[in-house]
């Protein structure tokens, strides 16, 4: 009986402070157990990330021909509003005029639309402050006004007043034809 107590009998193959066989087995067993738990933990965490079908729906196409000049159409993209604004020449001119004004998030109007498509402004319709949806045409600059905390955007979607830190985000999009865009 006495010779079966754990650790009572020194491993004859051990020398000095070197780890003996039993230490090796302990470390190997614990490492295998931790590896197994870690390997199972990842699927349990990753399952909360967007699923395959959610990602498959992540890009949309939109026909611009139905948006009149001066109008804004709001469509849902990735669960959020997407602003499609058909700007008038006056609104474009107002935006370009302010390119050199003091801006919190400096960008020229040129950088915020596709080349040669200045009339089309495509923006993610959530305020860069805390995510509310700004109302079109509000505020001092004729762009957008956020009703939640009073952020004001100009006709280029740039932040001009209020607590929001950034300009309205321009999503990744491309013109498939003169009247059709693909967003995402």
């Amino acid at each position: 009986m006495a010779d079966t107590v754990v650790g009572a009998t020194p491993d004859p193959h051990a020398s000095g402070d070197d780890p003996n066989r039993r230490d090796f087995i302990h470390i190997a067993a614990m490492a295998a157990a931790l590896g197994a738990v870690g390997g199972l933990a990842w699927p349990m965490i990753d399952q909360m990330n967007p699923a395959g079908d959610t990602l498959a729906l992540a890009s949309i196409e939109f026909d611009l021909s139905k948006v009149e000049a001066g109008q804004q159409v709001v469509v849902k993209w990735r669960g959020k509003p997407l602003f499609v604004r058909h700007r008038t020449p006056e609104q474009i001119a107002a935006a370009i005029k302010d390119d050199n004004a003091e801006l919190r998030d400096p960008q020229t109007d040129e950088q915020r639309h596709k080349e040669g498509k200045a009339e089309w402004l495509i923006l993610v319709g959530t305020c860069t402050h805390l995510g509310c949806v700004p109302t079109v045409g509000g505020g001092d600059y004729g762009g957008w006004f956020c009703p939640c905390h009073g952020s004001v955007y100009d006709t280029s979607g740039r932040i001009r007043k209020g607590p929001a830190p950034k300009n309205l985000e321009v999503p990744t999009y491309a013109f498939l034809s003169d009247t059709k865009i693909k967003v995402g």
Binding site: W42, Q47, M48, A51, G52, D53
Partner: peptide
């Protein structure tokens, strides 16, 4: 977290878990 207890959607939601949900 992924299952939908509704007669019109339950079956499809389980299939979605098997096919689309990460590690489902």
């Amino acid at each position: 977290m992924h299952y939908v207890p509704h007669i019109d959607m339950a079956f499809n939601s389980v299939q979605r878990i098997k096919r689309d949900v990460n590690y489902g």
